[in-house]
């Protein structure tokens, strides 16, 4: 599903060059659930951004479902994301001007899918928010916002789900519920899951753990 080869990311600030990822290589099979763990600044989020094609590496390649991400241009990668990828972010990234329902509808609307509202409503029901469809993000609790974000990530039935510290902004109890929900949906849809976390409990639920130390895969 995902094949990463000798991925390196460097950033230049002033006259010093900082290597965030160094020669990272791994493969993930379809249907696998993999946790990427590491301390703050170890390059986890950078790796996730590169896997999603949101950023470009200094060198190396990422193949998703056989396609070389960085052989595509930005719009090509966007099209690939629309087709295959779902996201769950630490800070939820819900759009404040849209209701819960509209936030979940957005990826379907962008894809021009028919009956976006029906699909979104169904999935919001699945994550337990059937009664809060017309609420704005600011009217929802953190846990509820993350449920909306999860519904938005799964509504397009992505083959690959990327999650960036999905419980990072939640208390332990809420975080546990969110994890449970995410794994349930992942099983139902048979998606490949890659999640970045430093939550030990969360990483133990994954089939495999990749540990990053100072940008190098251990």
């Amino acid at each position: 599903m995902v094949r990463v080869a000798q991925l390196t990311k460097q950033v230049t600030t002033g006259d010093s060059t900082l290597t965030i990822l160094r020669d990272v290589s791994f493969s993930i099979a379809a249907g696998e659930a993999v946790a990427v763990v590491g301390a703050s600044g170890s390059g986890k989020s950078t790796l996730l951004g590169l896997l999603a094609g949101l950023d470009t590496p200094t060198s190396g390649s990422v193949q998703v479902d056989g396609q070389d991400l960085f052989a595509l241009d930005e719009d090509g990668r966007a099209a690939l994301r629309a087709q295959m990828l779902g996201f769950v972010f630490q800070s939820f990234n819900l759009l404040p001007a849209m209701t819960a329902l509209e936030n979940v509808m957005l990826p379907l609307e962008l894809a021009g899918a028919p009956d976006a509202a029906g699909a979104a409503r169904e999935l919001l029901g699945r994550v337990g928010l059937a009664a809060r469809l017309t609420h704005y993000p600011k009217q929802l609790s953190g846990g509820e916002q993350q449920r909306v974000a999860i519904a938005r990530a799964f509504v397009t039935k992505p083959a690959l789900l990327l999650a960036d510290e999905p419980t990072g902004n939640l208390d332990a109890a809420t975080g546990a519920e969110i994890i449970k929900l995410m794994f349930e949906l992942n099983r139902e849809q048979g998606a490949t899951l890659i999640l970045v976390t430093h939550d030990a409990e969360l990483s133990q639920r994954c089939g495999r753990v990749l540990q990053l130390v100072g940008g190098v895969l251990q």
């Binding site: 719009d75 099209a79 957005l106 962008l110």
Partner: peptide, 16 residues
């Protein structure tokens, strides 16, 4: 800015 980033992330091209 956020709305645009989210839309791009969900596959909308720059032109779109």
């Amino acid at each position: 800015l956020d709305a645009c980033a989210v839309m791009r992330c969900h596959g909308a091209s720059r032109g779109r």
